[in-house]
């Protein structure tokens, strides 16, 4: 994260509920574009960010009352770094889930209605890291601007 990166204007917190996450992500996506996120990357970032935050809402807070999800962004010339903090339950096995997409070569009745989230995050981001520290989950996503998807 260099000194020329934009940070403060791109931090956001919202309660870990689906409705507030939906609004929060829309606001953050608009701000990132306004502050120079390349248009060619805007869709990838929004998709991956949404899937990452949906996972937090649906899994980390599945058993407990929602608290705030905090997102810090650092928008640099050649990359965007997004850090997502939450106080929900840890990821199973304390690691980032793998990225096998749900297969679609199947009968209508067996078509998957989910199971794409982590695949999309892996596919659209350049690096993913996860750590659990002092009861807080940190998911780190990096998007390089020179990698087309």
């Amino acid at each position: 994260m260099g000194a020329n990166c934009k940070q403060d204007c791109l931090n956001l917190s919202f309660p870990a509920t689906q409705v507030q996450a939906s609004e929060g992500i829309a606001i953050l996506s608009a701000r990132l574009e306004k502050h120079g996120l390349p248009e060619s990357k805007a869709d990838d970032v929004r998709i991956a960010l949404t899937e990452a935050i949906n996972n937090v809402v649906e899994h980390a807070y599945a058993e407990i009352s929602p608290t705030d999800i905090r997102i810090n962004c650092s928008l640099c010339a050649k990359e965007l770094i997004v850090q997502i903090f939450d106080s929900g339950d840890p990821m199973p096995g304390l690691r980032v889930p793998s990225s096998h997409p749900a297969p679609v070569d199947t009968d209508l009745e067996n078509l998957p209605e989910g199971g794409f989230g982590w695949y999309l995050i892996h596919r659209l981001s350049s690096d993913i890291q996860y750590e659990r520290k002092d009861g807080v989950n940190l998911l780190y996503l990096r998007f390089n601007f020179d990698t087309p998807h």
Partner: peptide, 12 residues
């Protein structure tokens, strides 16, 4: 915008 949950809803 659509996410994987919305996609799942169209499949459903």
């Amino acid at each position: 915008f659509i996410d994987s949950s919305g996609l799942g809803a169209i499949v459903a």
